Computed example of a mutant assay.
Amino acid sequence: MTAVQGFVRQIDLPQIHDPRGDLTFVEGGKHIPFEIRRVYYLYNVPVDAERGGHAHRELEQVVFALSGSFRIKIDDGREKSEYWLRDPRKGLYINRLVWREMDSFSQGAVCMVLASHRYDEGDYYRNYDDFLAAIRVAAE
Rank of each mutant, 00 (worst) to 15 (best):
A115D: 03
G29A: 10
Y41H: 12
L23M: 15
A133R: 02
L114K: 03
F64D: 07
M102P: 06
M1P: 15
R86C: 12
H56W: 09
Y125W: 06
Q5V: 14
R37V: 13
D129M: 07
R118Y: 07
F7H: 07
L59E: 02
V98H: 01
F7N: 03
G122A: 02
F7M: 02
R89H: 14
Q107L: 14
W84A: 14
L66F: 06
N95G: 11
R37N: 14
F70C: 10
G53R: 08
L23A: 11
G53A: 06
T24R: 04
Y124L: 01
E27S: 08
V8Y: 02
F70M: 11
R9H: 09
L85Y: 08
V110F: 13
W99S: 07
S106F: 05
D75S: 01
A109Q: 08
H117A: 07
I36E: 04
Y40F: 08
A55G: 08
C111F: 04
D130H: 02
Y119E: 08
G53T: 06
M102E: 05
Y128R: 00
K90L: 14
R89D: 10
R51C: 11
G68T: 01
R38F: 05
R89G: 12
F34M: 13
G53I: 07
P46R: 00
M102K: 06
S69V: 02
F70P: 14
I135M: 04
F70Q: 10
G53V: 11
E58D: 13
V45C: 09
W99R: 03
R96F: 14
V26S: 04
S81M: 12
V39F: 15
P14I: 13
S69A: 06
S116Q: 01
M102C: 10
D123M: 06
G52Q: 13
E50R: 09
G122M: 04
G6T: 02
R96W: 13
Q10S: 11
G77R: 03
F25C: 12
Y125N: 00
R126G: 00
S69W: 02
F34I: 14
V8I: 11
I135E: 03
D75A: 00
L85G: 13
A109H: 08
I11Q: 09
K80A: 15
S104K: 10
G28W: 01
R38T: 04
R38C: 05
E27R: 07
P19R: 01
L42K: 08
V45S: 03
S104C: 11
V137C: 10
L92M: 10
D12F: 04
C111E: 12
I11G: 09
Q15C: 13
A133G: 04
V63L: 05
V63R: 02
H117S: 08
C111Y: 04
K30Y: 08
G77C: 01
Y41E: 10
R20S: 15
E79R: 12
R118V: 07
R20T: 15
E101H: 12
L97K: 01
G52V: 15
R38L: 03
G6A: 02
Y125A: 00
R78P: 12
F70I: 13
G53C: 09
M112Q: 00
I11C: 11
G29Y: 08
H54V: 15
E140G: 14
F25K: 06
H56Y: 09
E35G: 12
D103C: 15
R51A: 08
S106K: 06
Y40W: 09
V113I: 01
Y119G: 06
L97A: 04
N44P: 13
V45Y: 08
F7S: 06
L13E: 04
R86P: 14
R71I: 11
S106A: 10
V98R: 01
F70T: 10
